[in-house]
Amino acid sequence: MTNLLVLQLLNGVQLGIILFLIAAGLTLVFGIMDVVNLAHGVLYMAGAYLMATFAAATGSFWWALLLVLPGAVVVGLLLEVVVIRRLYDRSHLDQVLATFGLVMMANETVKIIWGTSPLSVPMPDIFSGSVPLMGPLQYPVYRIAIIVAGLAVAGGLYLLVNHTRIGMLLRAGATNRAMVSALGVDIGKLFAIVFTLGAVLACFAGAIVAPILSVDTGMGESVLILTFVVVVIGGIGSIKGAFLGAVLVAVVDTLGGVFGPILLRSVLDASAAGQAGRTLAPMLVYILMAAILFAKPTGLFGGRG
């Protein structure tokens, strides 16, 4: 039981790290640019597909990862310049519609280029084994590597946001956009940087999970809604909130799926518990979100309504 708990907790943290990488960009785009971007999940998907393509072309995980990053910059900048830039001073409704259109286009484009069958990405050799944790418990090295890489990026992001000039502008922008603009900062350039940064983070997340997932067209959407929940829970514009929210959501989601039925079995008979558990588990994160919003409508670390 403890073994299972530790195992699932680690899986939860690993999912949380991925969610954080995606949510960090999303929360900045919402917080600083006030743009609803439904197409953010598309960037995560693009990262995974680029990874699969580059890995197949170069035969090396590392070269592929190295190539994904400039690819992500190109995709992010292109999207910003062609569409997102025109949406800054539009209503949320327009933003929803345009980015919804982008999602439809992106999913279909992926189907045209890569087909509908899922792709897989080979794991790098040095990360392919498992390590013993405690007692008989083994855990895949690659998942640990994801956690470490994610924490490193989170640390880097923390330094960037809190200890650099550009980070200062980001924080200022999230608090009061008009004032930053009035003080002579080129807000257009700042927005492009923010959006591209978010795109790179999401692509990176997609690239590093590609070896443990099957890469397919639906992957961006399942994760998009979860990152929305993360951003709402954490508070729009807050990276710290995104981190805590991501881990919270992922751990609740993972543990709920496994332990929900087990806990219910103590009060219900086995088949009813199994059914109720399967029904309730996917709803847990939304119930969590509702509870948090009920107490704090702007999320855990959100300043603005």
Partner: peptide
């Protein structure tokens, strides 16, 4: 719950609740 918030929050929260209902029926 959703109407305690406005703007971007409202859009995302209604979306999340919609998904909640969606997953409920998927597991039914």
């Amino acid at each position: 719950i959703s109407l305690r918030t406005r703007g971007v929050y409202f859009i995302m929260i209604t979306l999340a609740f919609g998904q909640m209902a969606f997953f409920f029926f998927i597991s039914l």
